[in-house]
């Protein structure tokens, strides 16, 4: 029998909700216990948060000054060391997990399964390819460890209320010094909910026309308590920062309500929103492909419609 290890994503202070989504994926592996590894400079607080996730047996705390920032080259050898006791190693399919898990897999000499969206058995999974235009069912060899990323949009966050034990581990692993963290600059969404956990997301596209006009999206988002997203074209044009991009190369999200305004609906954008419960599209072009997948569509000029919505909502 095996055991699952999830690598926690965090910013040194807070456990990222992507970890709780991985725990829900792990719950689909009947009979396998699930642990969480927290690599941090001082992991106390993160470990306490991880220990409350329902379904987690053990939280493995690995403190090291070198773990202050999540650098794959530094995390990977430590995780490869922890891997000895485990049959399955999971990270979220966020930029954190995508950067890290292939490096772990290669150190272990095994393949990686990217973006698990459903679990068929301990060694069989479904995952999207071609920007989600096809879904493959794959099988991995039972003698190999399964290293994988979990498609976070496919899973709800595990509930709290658990009480896992926290175990301190000191790892005797040589860590490289060839990669050094410098800084992170984020737009932080101006105090708005973040894309991954928001129940409502409002996105703007090239149709907004300028950074100044993009304020219309923020205003509407604030009215609804929504997170703000964007198409690649809007990010490329400088209307909004990159961490708001939704799609194949941005974030894959699964809100209850997604409102796309001035977005044409390219497949790379649709990939990021397919898991939304309800999609609303506002576009002046009645033939825009976004209407093919929208649950509610409204053809018209966003510059008249947004102010009207603000009054009505």
């Amino acid at each position: 029998m095996g055991r699952i290890l999830i690598i926690a994503e965090h910013d040194g202070n807070e456990l990222n909700p992507s970890t709780a989504r991985c725990v829900s994926c792990a719950a689909e592996f009947s009979g396998l216990d699930c642990d969480i590894a927290v690599l941090a400079k001082d992991g106390q607080r993160i470990c306490e948060q991880a220990a409350t996730l329902d379904g987690v047996s053990n939280v493995v705390r690995v403190d090291n000054d070198a773990n202050e920032h999540a650098l794959a080259a530094i995390h990977a050898p430590q995780i490869a060391k922890l891997a000895e006791k485990y049959s399955h190693l999971f990270g979220p399919s966020t930029t954190f997990g995508k950067d890290l898990m292939p490096r772990v897999a290669a150190l272990l000499g095994v393949a990686q399964v990217s973006d698990i969206m459903s679990v068929i058995s301990h060694y069989s999974f479904q995952r999207p390819i071609f920007a989600g235009n096809a879904i493959v069912t794959v099988e991995t060899p039972a003698q190999d460890k399964v290293v994988a990323t979990v498609r976070t949009a496919s899973y709800q966050a595990a509930a709290g209320g658990g009480s896992a034990t926290i175990e301190l581990r000191v790892l005797d692993v040589e860590l490289p010094s060839h990669t050094r963290y410098r800084s992170t600059s984020g737009s932080n969404g101006g105090g708005r909910p973040d894309l991954q956990s928001a129940s409502v997301v409002i996105s703007g596209g090239r149709g907004l026309g300028s950074e100044k006009n993009f304020a219309l999206i923020y205003q509407l988002a604030d009215r609804l308590g929504a997170a703000v997203g964007a198409s690649r074209a809007a990010v490329d044009a400088g209307y909004i920062a990159n961490d708001h991009q939704v799609g194949q190369t941005g974030q894959i999200i699964s809100p209850d309500l997604y409102i796309a305004i001035g977005i044409s609906g390219a497949i790379q954008h649709i990939t990021g929103i397919k898991d939304a419960s309800t999609i609303v599209a506002i576009n002046k072009d009645a033939d825009a492909p976004i209407f093919e997948i929208a649950d509610i569509g409204l053809v018209g000029d966003l510059f008249t419609i947004i102010p009207e919505l603000e009054l009505l909502l």
Partner: peptide, 30 residues
């Protein structure tokens, strides 16, 4: 071949939904 592809499926299709005429109708629908 470590990862064997057993089967390839089309993703569940999202259906084209309802068109509304104006902002008021959209809000009513929501």
């Amino acid at each position: 071949t470590r990862i064997k592809v057993v089967k390839t499926d089309s993703p569940p299709a999202r259906q084209k939904g309802k068109m509304v005429a104006d902002a008021a109708e959209l809000v009513a629908e929501l």
